[in-house]
Nucleic acid binder design. Structure first.
Lengths: 200, 200
DNA sequence: CACTCATGTCAACGACTGTAGGCCAACATT
DNA sequence: AATGTTGGCCTACAGTCGTTGACATGAGTG
């Protein structure tokens, strides 16, 4: 080992900047065009390098997508949501809807994931995994009956994904024109009910 | 004019069967693969004819999609939904959710429309038009404030499209495993509220 | 019968795709 | 300075795509 600043952090390579540029361009293209129309050549052009570099660093197109779509929803900790006295005056539904809007508008990864997941098996699996592993625990902690947790998570996912689809992908004009606050006000009770209501 | 049974109905041509076979194969492929991966060659193979026939009858791939994705939601008449005493013991929300599930499972046109709309501009526009022109009037008739009708229609669309996305496209396991009745029971109050509630 | 036109097949073109491999320059290490 | 390694570009291949046009065949009509 020559230089390890802390523990076993990989050394900074000169190619890190290039790799990052490729990933950023890939996310933009996947988000804008979906899997098939986002060509390696176009991504390389955006990143200002040669297409063969993409192959060198990510193996093939699937590997590139896997690297570009790594994603953490960063949902608030379950404990934070359930401990008594948390969220003063706020409901879980509103917190979650706002958080999802934040995550959706922060970068283009979720849009890419959605656009790709619709026509690509790997993308669909990753979308499944994100909602199962990251939203699932929240539903499990809030659901009155633990056995219902997966269904409740799927219901929340359906409403969140549906709004994202309408607003960020299909761009239905009324969905685009609604203010952030209007969306939160309408969707929060829905999400709240899907997670916590005793019966439909 | 040689033969016009009623008014100006086009004469039955021998190629009608071929055209229909092409459209059916196109709908299947577009629904299963999306726009880019649904190739004219594959569609022609499914229909048992030569790819050039597709070009002859529909001009190009866009024309084929336009013909294959013509769609009528067949929503219940607005009058039927609003007249006093209609829907004995039923809520509008439940009727609409059931109707949407029916339409989604009846054929593959809506799935094709959704899969294509996510990556293809023409598909997105058609999806917009379907919900604007066919769901919009229902929202206008039910909304307390006519000015809110487009927003309310978009909210309903977001929940319906989201469930269709989760259940028929992404196939999130919990969404697939839910029974039809469970979905209706959970979504109906949401749709009902989006259409008729005074305030969020 | 001959003629016409709709229906269908076949072969090909040009463009674009993912991917592979060879070559070159800059750098780090000895 | 010599050497091995890393980062990068260029060219090329094999395959697929949408699309085109020439050609064959059949039915229908005079």
């Amino acid at each position: 080992m020559s230089d390890s600043p802390t523990s076993d952090a990989p050394p900074r390579r000169r190619s890190d900047a290039t790799k990052a540029a490729i990933l950023e361009a890939a996310r933009e293209r996947f988000a804008a065009d979906g899997y098939e129309r986002a060509t390696i050549r176009a991504i390389a052009r955006d990143a200002g390098i040669d297409p063969s570099m993409v192959m060198r660093y990510y193996g093939n197109k699937e590997g590139l997508f896997a690297a570009a779509s790594a994603f953490d929803l960063r949902l608030p900790d379950v404990g934070t949501l359930t401990e008594p006295g948390a969220l003063p005056g706020r409901q879980v539904g509103a917190v979650l809807v706002e958080h999802f809007l934040d995550r959706w508008e922060a970068d283009e990864v979720l849009t890419a994931l959605l656009r790709v997941g619709v026509t690509n098996a790997a993308g669909a699996e990753r979308m499944q995994a994100v909602f199962r592993d990251q939203l699932g625990p929240v539903a499990a902690a809030l659901s009155p009956d633990p056995a219902q947790a997966p269904s409740r998570a799927a219901l929340v996912a359906s409403q969140i994904l549906g709004m994202a689809l309408a607003r960020y992908v299909l761009r239905l004009p009324p969905a685009v024109e609604m203010t952030r606050q209007e969306i939160v006000d309408w969707l929060a009770p829905t999400v709240q009910r899907y997670l916590t209501a005793e019966r439909p």
